[in-house]
Design a protein around this nucleic acid. Structure first.
Lengths: 200, 200
DNA sequence: TGTACATCAGTGAACGCGCGTTCACTGATGTAC
DNA sequence: TGTACATCAGTGAACGCGCGTTCACTGATGTAC
């Protein structure tokens, strides 16, 4: 006997699962993902603590789901449409800063947990960020997919994430200033990249 | 009546305080500072939980003490002796990587909590790192102490911390590779700085 | 169509445990005179 | 020198609380025939 949940059932489960993820994100942005408890998150998602186990075995597993189901889509939007040809990285920076406006909690999660306390989360986030760097590399150069991304792009990503961390603690006008500052910090990198390409 | 503890007494108290700080650092590097408990740290420092209050009012206060009493001295060693004139930043990077060898737990604390969950810790660490950047700027240019540090140096610091975060999860040979990679990532920055200075 | 059964998200009670904090106390060591 | 008192780091017992986890259960909804 093969039983399958109806679409309605599956959607309802998905809704609760999503509520748990968002609750963890919100609470985590306040006092850190590693200090979150299963009961605390369940309470915020308006389900009984015991219902948590219908979705995740424990909080670390929920953390990985956050990376794969929320962080990955966010990062994919950065490279989904080709960036403007003449100022590709400035555009990238601006997009990321827009992401802060739209979903600061998610961005804080990425920035905080990248060097946070859970090794599994650090690894998962590093992989997702590496995807972005590789996608940018292919877009820039049309390089073969087996090619390693150049250090320059990884440097750019490090700068970007650092900038995001800074603006999360800033507000209003300061954010715009930090955005411009970051784009200017990119300048030597872009210049260097062009020089290298001219040589090749 | 003015009572003062003897030197011996004060040294003993300082010894226990230091044990608490080191215990927090060790445990925090395993599963995150924000998840640390007063009892857990006291246990690791071999004192009764109630004795904790003789040294700190709570864990956040201990965190600030970590920044001021352990992180600050570490960072000061980076700029205490003038860096080699011709390759100042490569030397800086190498020094920081040596710090990882000597006290990885302390470096992880800096890297993790810089964008971690405690706003007070983020602020305190940002201030300490800004000190380093300013000190480097003065050393480089002999600039007036009122001068703001250039974005280029802040960019360099962002790269450095990102690199440190990466090598903390690497081991052995990978570390040396990452160190070289980072020094190469510095190249465009240094080149850009020289160009700017030539202009001025 | 009706009936018997399977699935499965959500639940409330209950458990043992470690937590942060309070309290009154000890004992070593300092000061006053 | 002796005596009375102050200071203060460290302590063990006790508290109430929230935690993660287990368990047996409910009720809605699916499948089989």
């Amino acid at each position: 006997m093969v039983l399958r949940a109806s679409l309605q059932k599956r959607e309802e489960k998905e809704r609760v699962r999503h509520a748990l993820l968002r609750a963890a994100l919100q609470l985590g942005s306040e006092h850190g993902f590693s200090s979150l408890g299963l009961r605390e998150v369940s309470r915020a998602a308006a389900i009984a603590p015991t219902s948590f186990y219908r979705h995740f075995t424990d909080m670390p597993e929920l953390g990985l789901a956050l990376v794969h189901e929320l962080v990955r889509p966010l990062l994919q939007t950065l490279t989904s449409e080709p960036v403007t040809a003449n100022t590709p990285h400035a555009t990238l920076v601006e997009r990321m800063f827009e992401a802060v406006e739209q979903d600061a909690e998610l961005v804080r999660f990425v920035v905080a947990e990248r060097f946070g306390s859970f090794a599994s989360l650090r690894k998962a986030l590093a992989e997702e960020l590496e995807r972005v760097v590789l996608a940018l590399h292919w877009a820039d150069t049309g390089a073969d997919r087996a090619t390693h991304a150049p250090h320059l792009l990884e440097t750019g990503m490090a700068l970007l994430l650092d900038g995001l961390g800074r603006i999360l603690d800033a507000s209003g006008n300061d954010r715009a200033v930090l955005c411009e500052t970051l784009i200017r910090a990119y300048a030597p990198l872009v210049h260097h990249a062009q020089t290298e390409q001219r040589r090749a």
